[in-house]
């Protein structure tokens, strides 16, 4: 275990997250009561909803840091936006994976165009667009500005997507299952506690991954800087 920790360069903060993850696993898989209608499979909810919260929170963070980037023009805010987008995308993928796995036994089908699933799908696509522009625009000098613009527009868009997907399906009975069990009044106190704990743990985990991702981006800048210095002093040696 210690070997794995060093290999992954897990910091004390990371260890706290790991302990938190194990604790929330216990709370959601064993301690929380069994849901009466859906049975044990409802326990997916604790990690699914927590991931959805992070996916949305991360994009708002992308938007806020993009505004600050356009304002101050400091690379570190671009790094914050990029890292938040990448880590948020990972959590958005978790939502997209666990959603259908939960849906199959409950609704009898992997996918329905339920408002929440549709919302996550569109958010996922916006993340994809952001990361694609990052990767394929890497050689453009203005790409950071473009990304900031996309981050801002995407964040402004979140409430619109929310209402559009909600009204689009109306109050479909399918969606009531999600609404009631996801955040609704029908939840027992212990379930809410388990959900709150996993949301807090996922938030910690998000910040831990953010920290790691930002450090990585700064390393990349340092390497880029050194590469330029070598190139400058001795043209033609590097990359040959």
């Amino acid at each position: 275990m210690a070997g794995l920790a060093t290999r992954l360069r897990i910091t004390p903060f990371g260890l706290i997250c790991l302990v938190g993850l194990v604790a929330s696993l216990y709370l959601s898989l064993i301690w929380a009561p069994r849901e009466r209608v859906m049975g044990d499979v409802q326990r997916i909810m604790y990690f699914h909803v927590a991931s959805a919260w992070i996916a949305e929170f991360a994009f708002v963070l992308v938007g806020v840091s993009s505004v600050i980037y356009l304002w101050l023009r400091e690379r570190r805010w671009d790094i914050v936006a990029y890292s938040a987008a990448e880590v948020g995308f990972v959590f958005c993928c978790f939502v997209m994976i666990t959603g259908p796995i939960w849906g199959k036994p409950v609704w009898g089908t992997w996918w329905t165009w339920d408002p929440r699933l549709t919302f996550s799908m569109i958010l996922w696509l916006i993340y994809v667009a952001y990361l694609m522009l990052r990767v394929y625009g890497d050689d453009m000098p203005q790409v950071k500005t473009f990304l900031a613009v996309l981050g801002i527009l995407g964040t402004i868009d979140i409430p619109f997507i929310h209402f559009a997907t909600m009204w689009w399906r109306g109050l479909h009975p399918d969606s009531l299952v999600m609404t009631e069990e996801g955040l609704g009044a029908g939840m027992e106190v212990d379930m809410r506690i388990a959900l709150a704990v996993s949301a807090v743990v996922f938030t910690l985990l998000f910040f831990y991954l953010m920290q790691r991702r930002m450090a990585l981006e700064r390393l990349r800048d340092e390497a880029e800087d050194l590469r330029e210095r070598v190139e400058h002093r001795h043209p033609g040696t590097v990359g040959a």
């Binding site: 569109i122 994809v128 667009a129 996309l150 619109f160 997507i161 559009a164």
Partner: peptide, 9 residues
């Protein structure tokens, strides 16, 4: 890729 997700609402 950029436009359609944002314009979906």
């Amino acid at each position: 890729v950029l436009l359609l997700p944002v314009a979906s609402p």
